[in-house]
Amino acid sequence: MQLKVEKLTHIYSEGLPFESLAMTDVSFTMEQGEFAALIGHTGSGKSTLIQHINGLLKPTSGHVYLDGVDVNEKSPEARALRRRIGLVFQYPEYQLFEETVLKDVCFGPKNLGLSEEEAEEVSREALALVGITGEKLERSPFNLSGGEKRRVAIAGVLAMDPELLILDEPTAGLDPRGHAEILDAVRRIREKKNMSIIMVSHNMDDVASLADRVLVLEDGRLIMDGSPREIFARGEELRAIGLEIPSAKDFMEKLAKMPALKEKGLEIDDGAITIDEAQEEILKLFGSKA
């Protein structure tokens, strides 16, 4: 589905002494199947923005449209569209509550009105997609590892078969293994389902390797919007607002500045943002020398 955010402005606690402007005049459009990464410093409004997309927060002014329908309309149409959005919050494992993993994942589909059997079927499928199978389905969700709990929570949202999946820092606070498993799950979801995905992330390596569009928020404003290559080429600006660039890109930039390379008259393109791209560039260098 198409997501269109138009001049979105949000003020928390309007009219009280603690009033604060969280979102100012944010506009962008996202088409079906796009994978956008949302980056920004802590407190830049990322969580505020994504909560507007399924109507959990109401804009102070501006609109959010899904396939041309305002999500905040009271019509059954808007209600149905809101249900097409799958929102996975930060630390989603804290929302688990059922006795078994399978039952917990069934909670969403059952709320959508699916029968017990149908719910179990879609739940098993969703769990397989995030790599949870076999006897783990009958375990208590509280007895799983941190990474597994989180994947179960993601499956809980996936089982509702959303058209737009929103992941709010899905890898925060996980060990490297848990981190890799979550990314694998995201990749599988991307391949198997034709879902649009918005991922909030602080890890620029993940952003570079997964996303095909990057939105940069700063102080409640959308200040950059483009392909990862375009955005990460503006490293100085990103650093100025407390963000980083992918480690591969950082490495290539440093490499390109090496005096030894200049002395030998070698030139290297520092545009690579992933390790694969960097490798290709470096191999080219060897090739030109040989």
Partner: peptide, 16 residues
Amino acid sequence: DETDKIMKAQTARGAD
């Protein structure tokens, strides 16, 4: 805050 967060998360999963 915690209640608010869990409520939102469960609402997003269709809880009423």
